[in-house]
Design a protein around this nucleic acid. Structure first.
Lengths: 234, 234
DNA sequence: GAGTGGTCTAGACCACAAC
DNA sequence: TTGTGGTCTAGACCACTCC
């Protein structure tokens, strides 16, 4: 791991370990350079990463301060790693409906920038929070990149599996959402009436190289889903 | 303006002027250093800013590429400058309901980190897109920072006014949203039935110093609002 | 192997904050 | 005035891509 990521991780751990909360001040840069034995630039890079993630904010002439607001039960749309990571701390259960290989329709070809004969893994899952249905999800992974998937893997965090076993990690994501209505199939899984309202979220995940590898459509239960988006001005 | 922001702006202009689209390659760093007569580090800093904004992505050993997806009509939640900037290109009309000075209730005190006797400007506005009601908004600005507001200013972009006339610009924002129901007042403004569904968005805007200066609650019309969130993995 | 971006450093100097 | 973060540079070296 490169130094600045190492430093960023250790600062995050420091914040957690010391149970620091909003507006608490971090050690000054000069102190951090001594502590981690790296240059000022490396510390600044690490702090910039944490700032971009929404964990801290930096004030010229004053210091760096904790920003992160831990909101149990809120889905952080700025770290859309499936769901498992974003809902840390909240018990999340997964029911896998099916995992199979399919070919893309026109819309999926568009989002995944692929031909109509390319093989994709389709994963259908329902997510429960406190035994309440939270979301129903259909994800398409390009087999070209995600060479293998099965039901057992889909029971857990697919993104952790991709990272740990296939060495795949996303570079960036486009997320789109609006209010929509449940289809018959979706209503069944969310234990709602057909046509009931939901938040429909579409994600397009890209590799660091810019190639899209995952397209997913989710519907969130109107009463059990709440979201959080931290942003910065540059 | 500092150099890297200048360079970032010029690269953005370059992308626009040349009508570059997704996955088009930018000039290499070495060329940019010559063109702008700045160091490599400054170019990299400029590119990092554009990457954080979601406009480009960088691939090691390969180059920098255009990422930005212009989606007419989608509200970009990663640049929540009120609304005027995020819906660029789409005709947006504003009806100001009222602008007045008020004192905060308990919830607002919490979000704005202020006492119960601090003066706040309350702005109520309805936004229309293509003559359809898009959102109804109640924003609270701390008079301590936003020393003056009136109906005429609220007709336009309040954030532009803050930047140009009061030299106030946000440092970061926390946004929260979920599906909710319209109150009687809101339903009237959105031309909907009472209790109808909406997306309820709460924004907490902070100055670069970390002080909250604006708390706003919006309800978006369920049929006319769609959102976009670009994110990066670090 | 050539091209291209990524990391890291030391150091000079600037800008803003706090006292 | 001092503390502290921000900007900018030149340069060395590393890592990945593409031919």
């Amino acid at each position: 791991m490169v130094k600045y990521k190492q430093v960023a991780q250790e600062i995050t751990d420091f914040i957690t370990k010391n149970q620091m909360s909003q507006h608490d001040k971090l050690p000054v840069i000069d102190e951090l350079t001594k502590q981690f034995k790296v240059s000022k630039s490396t510390i600044i890079k690490a702090l910039d990463i944490l700032e971009a993630k929404g964990q801290i904010y930096q004030v010229q002439g004053s210091g760096s301060f904790v920003r992160e607001v831990i909101l149990p039960g809120y889905i952080n749309l700025n770290r859309p790693s499936g769901l498992t990571q974003t809902l840390q701390g909240t018990p999340l259960n997964t029911k896998v409906i099916e995992v199979k290989l399919v070919k893309p329709d026109a819309e999926i070809q568009e989002y995944l920038d692929c031909k109509d004969d390319e093989e994709l893994y389709l994963v259908k899952r329902v997510r429960y929070i406190d035994d309440q249905p939270l979301s129903y999800e259909e994800s398409y992974y390009r087999k070209k990149y995600v060479v293998y998937l099965n039901e057992e893997i889909a029971e857990g965090s697919i993104f952790s599996y991709l990272k740990d076993h296939l060495d795949i990690k996303p570079g960036f994501v486009n997320s789109y959402f609006k209010i929509d209505h449940l289809t018959t199939e979706e209503a069944g899984y969310l234990e709602e009436d057909v046509g009931e309202h939901c938040i429909r979220l579409v994600n397009q995940f890209f590799l660091p190289s810019g190639a899209p590898f995952d397209y997913s459509v989710l519907c969130y239960h109107k009463d059990h889903a709440q979201f959080f988006v931290p942003s910065n001005y540059y």
